[in-house]
Amino acid sequence: MNVLQIVSQQLKEANYSVAALEESSVTYLAFEGDTVLGFVLAFPDSRGLIENWRPHSQQVLKAAQFGLRRAEAKSWNAYLILLAAEPADYGASVTLSAIEEDLTGTRKIARAGIDSEEGARGALLPLLAIQNAPQLDAVDMASEIRLRTTELPTDLVEAFVGGAPDAAILQMLETGQ
């Protein structure tokens, strides 16, 4: 399965409308959600991405210019996602980071080593809903309170943990026990 197919599937699962398009010799995806729209360009390796991202993205954005104007507020949330299937070396990784920092026209995500669903998901995280709610272990609150209140009198802590009436706890505080 190629990079564009993997990304297309993941964007569809995230409830984006996705279309595969071609402009001149550039095949790409266009996607749109409630508040975001963008384009995905795939390259075989990071060298090809670095050399061609600007001319290819200009072709795509030129072809989509009227749609971007009609998108109004959404066009402020336009993404250009540039993905390379092969992993990048250190120098290429630095250059990909610099591409992401270039906010001219669109926000950018530039990643290499996108040859699996996991890799694509990692690159698309800024566009995907939170995947998993945090799972917290059960906490014994009485033990936690005892552990964290070592400077308070033991009788006062036990009264609080044991559910003593507020008046009794206040009285203990006032008398300094």
Rank of each mutant, 00 (worst) to 15 (best):
A30C: 04
H56A: 12
M172N: 08
W76C: 03
S46R: 04
E51C: 02
G33F: 02
I99Y: 03
K62G: 13
F39N: 04
L49N: 09
E144K: 11
G176E: 10
A84L: 05
D166V: 13
S93V: 02
A133H: 06
E32R: 13
L125C: 03
E158M: 07
V36Y: 01
V7K: 01
V60N: 04
A19Q: 13
A168F: 04
I130S: 12
S17V: 12
L173F: 00
S97M: 10
P87H: 05
S24A: 14
A98R: 15
A88D: 09
A129C: 01
E23P: 00
D89W: 00
R121S: 15
E23G: 00
E32G: 11
V36C: 03
E22F: 00
A14S: 13
D137Y: 00
A110T: 11
G163A: 10
S8Y: 01
T154P: 01
P165G: 02
G162Y: 02
L83R: 11
G176A: 08
A167F: 05
L124T: 12
A133W: 06
A110R: 04
S17I: 10
K108I: 10
V18D: 04
V60F: 02
A133E: 12
E86P: 03
Q65R: 15
T149E: 06
L125P: 02
D155E: 15
F160S: 05
L147V: 00
R69Y: 07
P55I: 09
T149A: 09
V3C: 06
T106W: 04
E86C: 04
S46L: 06
L96R: 01
V36T: 15
Q59I: 10
R111N: 12
I81V: 15
L49H: 03
Q10W: 05
T95A: 14
I169G: 05
A30D: 07
S75W: 01
V40S: 03
S143M: 08
D166T: 12
A84D: 09
A42Q: 08
F31E: 03
Q135G: 00
L37H: 00
F66D: 14
R146P: 05
H56E: 11
E51R: 11
A112M: 12
R121P: 03
D89V: 11
V36P: 01
S75G: 03
N2S: 12
Q9M: 12
A63G: 08
A64R: 06
A138G: 07
I145Y: 03
A133Q: 11
P134Q: 08
Q58F: 00
A142S: 14
L124E: 07
G122Q: 15
F160E: 08
I50K: 05
G176V: 11
G67K: 08
A159V: 07
S116Y: 10
T104I: 13
L152P: 04
F31D: 09
D140R: 07
V18G: 02
Y16P: 07
S75K: 10
Q5S: 15
A64G: 01
Y28W: 05
W76E: 14
L11H: 02
A138E: 13
S46M: 06
L127K: 07
G48R: 13
G162P: 10
F31G: 08
L147A: 13
L11A: 05
L152I: 13
A71T: 09
